[in-house]
């Protein structure tokens, strides 16, 4: 089984290559120019451009044709699992699904992961590992189903502006317009950005994130986690160090946020994704 995903998974290139994952890029539009996520523009270059402009970036899903080309290239010999960003955040799964409907001869499962970024990345990576180990299709799909309900994503941003302007603020809309400076602790719950807590101060924010991961961990089981961040890696470093000290924590990877997620969350975002090993 071949695993296909979209560029919002924010997986490090090394792992993508190691596990033969195919990534279909979304497109970022800034000013009058558009760039394919990761292919045309590196994250660091994008953060620099964002800091120099007043414009807010927008994004665009891959076309049906983009998916058709990728699916056709793989062809009939292999089944395909196409795992994507939440349908409530992007029409990417719709493009993938429309493409899959045009190829009745190829076995394609299009699955909406109900999450994105580091959450999608962890699910894709586990699925690709299972596929590489020779697991059968049904086992991989069962694994993905389980991870969709178990993988948690918590994140924060310095400002809600990007989430608001890009229309992806979801239920965290309730936090917009707050006159005091708050550090919003956010999560992705069933496909939507959801507010968890309104926190005053960055040290308290990191402490709460740590507390939540520890609360979710079961005794003696390993918590597998990954981190993504935009311009500032510092909170991620602190969080990772503290988690390793206080529980059985395995950091699977850490990576810069890609340009599509940065467009909607802003360059100050950072996130942790994790799940408890069975």
């Amino acid at each position: 089984m071949r695993i296909i995903t979209d560029s919002t998974c924010d997986l490090p290139r090394k792992l993508v290559e190691e596990y033969d994952i195919i990534i279909v890029p979304l497109t970022v539009i800034l000013g009058s120019k558009s760039y394919r996520d990761y292919y045309d523009l590196s994250p660091n270059e994008f953060y620099r451009m964002l800091n120099e402009t007043e414009d807010f970036p927008s994004t665009s899903q891959p076309s049906v044709d983009d998916f058709l080309r990728v699916y056709k290239e793989i062809g009939k010999d292999e089944s395909i699992l196409s795992l994507h960003i939440s349908m409530d955040m992007s029409a990417t799964p719709q493009s993938a699904w429309l493409a899959s409907q045009q190829l009745p001869d190829i076995q394609i499962d299009v699955i909406d992961s109900r999450t994105t970024s580091v959450g999608l990345g962890l699910i894709v990576l586990e699925a690709a590992k299972a596929a590489k180990n020779g697991a059968d299709d049904r086992t991989i799909i069962k694994l993905v189903e389980r991870l969709i309900s178990e993988v948690k994503v918590y994140f924060s941003v310095d400002s809600l502006d990007h989430l608001l302007k890009g229309g992806r603020i979801g239920k965290a809309q309730a936090l917009a317009g707050t006159m005091l400076k708050i550090k919003p602790l956010l999560s992705i719950e069933d496909g939507l950005v959801t507010p968890v807590e309104k926190i005053r101060g960055s040290r308290k924010l990191l402490r709460r994130m740590r507390e939540i991961v520890i609360r979710d961990s079961t005794e003696n089981k390993t918590v597998k986690g990954a981190f993504v961040w935009g311009q500032n890696e510092k909170p991620v470093e602190g969080l990772s160090r503290h988690l390793s000290e206080s529980l059985n924590f395995e950091e699977i990877y850490r990576n810069n946020l890609g340009n599509v997620i940065t467009s909607h969350a802003g360059p100050t975002a950072f996130a942790i994704g994790y799940f408890c090993e069975k």
Binding site: S60, S63, V64, D65, L68, A91, S95, L98
Partner: peptide, 11 residues
């Protein structure tokens, strides 16, 4: 237009 359809209105 079918191959490049984007968004609900595009489809």
């Amino acid at each position: 237009t079918l191959m490049n359809a984007r968004g609900c209105s595009g489809v």
